[in-house]
Design a protein around this nucleic acid. Structure first.
Lengths: 236, 236
DNA sequence: CCAATAGTGTCTATCAGACAGTATCGA
DNA sequence: TCGATACTGTCTGATAGACACTATTGG
């Protein structure tokens, strides 16, 4: 039984990389431009080394704060969860690096260019990001993140998080449509959302939604985090 | 932008731990007894250090082979997937260890005591394992694994993997009931399974199932891996 | 015969998809 | 008035839950 034999310890570098997704006009990911080799000049996921005394979750939060002025420092309105771990021996040409990837979902926010010492993080539509060179295996990480996000919208209320603190049902539907790349029946979507206890609650306000038309009632997240039964893709 | 600055590299140990689950009379997990400190004598998940030149998946497969004579060497009929990564700074008292946990699902197999140099891995009912001291944070890993397995039975055909190469519908239902801890309606279960394309296909044979009664037709896995629509827990 | 499982059929409530129709806004 | 969105209502097909009933084995 060789397990946990201290003499066989092999040193690794451990990093966290965060895939921050939001749904504006298009599903978008927050990327930074690498300033050093390897992959200097390429776009990359925000991330960095885990410090000796912090948890993996703490490292993800810290990297988001340091590299991302788009996300608020207290992470209010941001969902963060561990995604998967990537550790191919050759994924970093310099050394053996294992990266714990995180998925963050947040409401769309404007790009804040040149924010202090934070890297110039900016939103890039996922379709565009997938056709540009990304550093390391970040394309693979992005793909896993997008699929996880798509799946999670089905059975959780995270779409409300991505729609912001106050949203119309049209905006909430838009989050689903942009994330799934698929149109939904408006009337059925309304019925489903409004009949699911704890998904949304009315604010009592009205406001213009997306484009011209009548003002729509606004809603906010209610307490629930899971959707039973789920809202299904592929529509049937 | 501090990310990926080689000078800030902090060495970690990286391990894999594998949660092997099977559904016999009870949902059970494969555990080994630790032979060294810390936690010597306690039960632990099979696992060990990732070697310098292997992938994380390869490490998980290797540890299963080395430590587990219960699982066949070629992993035929075994489903293996990455589960989550655990990295609390104090999870190993000796050093900073990040563990990539894997989930394996397989058909129930008899314990093979004292198998060569392999550790004495043995099946322990999950309920029992959760009330015994497990090494490190392996109880937390086990809980995450069980919840993942329960969820996966809903929307994948992995129950067929856990039922073995040839099974009756009663045995397949038993896999669900033991994993979920919940009774299912037999007639509805049959209808659902048989009407899902690609889930199971008849072998043409008959055999006694669980306990006395008429011989039942046996089935094997068909091609599908996803169940749409899923078989839902909570029943109703 | 009895216990236990295998297998079939049916009724019904629920619900998602489809779609029609009205209401309300800005231009 | 027109375009666009907001909102309501209805029909229907699919399906899951509940349950009754018969069939086949071992003891």
């Amino acid at each position: 039984m060789s397990s946990y034999d201290p003499s066989s310890f092999t040193p690794f570098a451990v990093t966290v990389d965060v895939v921050v997704l939001s749904a504006a006009d298009a599903l978008s990911v927050l990327l930074v431009e690498r300033g050093i080799e390897p992959f200097m000049g390429d776009l990359a996921l925000p991330g960095g080394f885990v410090l000796p005394s912090e948890t993996l979750d703490d490292a993800a939060v810290r990297e988001l704060r340091e590299e991302t002025s788009v996300v608020p420092a207290d992470l209010a309105g941001v969902h963060l969860e561990q995604l998967a771990t990537f550790g191919r021996p050759d994924r970093d040409p310099r050394m053996r690096v294992v990266s714990v990837a995180y998925l963050a979902l947040t409401a769309a926010r404007p790009n804040t260019a040149g924010a202090s010492d934070a890297a110039a993080a900016r939103w890039v539509p996922v379709d565009e990001a997938r056709s540009t060179p990304l550093a390391f295996d970040h394309l693979e990480i992005l793909d896993v993140a997008v699929e996880r996000a798509r799946a999670k919208l089905e059975y959780t209320t995270l779409a409300a998080t991505m729609a912001g603190p106050e949203f119309t049902l049209g905006e909430l539907q838009h989050v689903y449509e942009v994330t799934w790349g698929e149109q939904l029946e408006r009337a059925n979507f309304r019925r489903k959302v409004l009949s699911t206890p704890g998904f949304v609650e009315a604010t009592g306000h009205r406001r213009r939604g997306r484009g011209g038309g009548a003002p729509a009632a606004t809603y906010r997240s209610a307490g629930a985090s899971m959707l039973v039964p789920p809202i299904v893709r592929g529509g049937g």
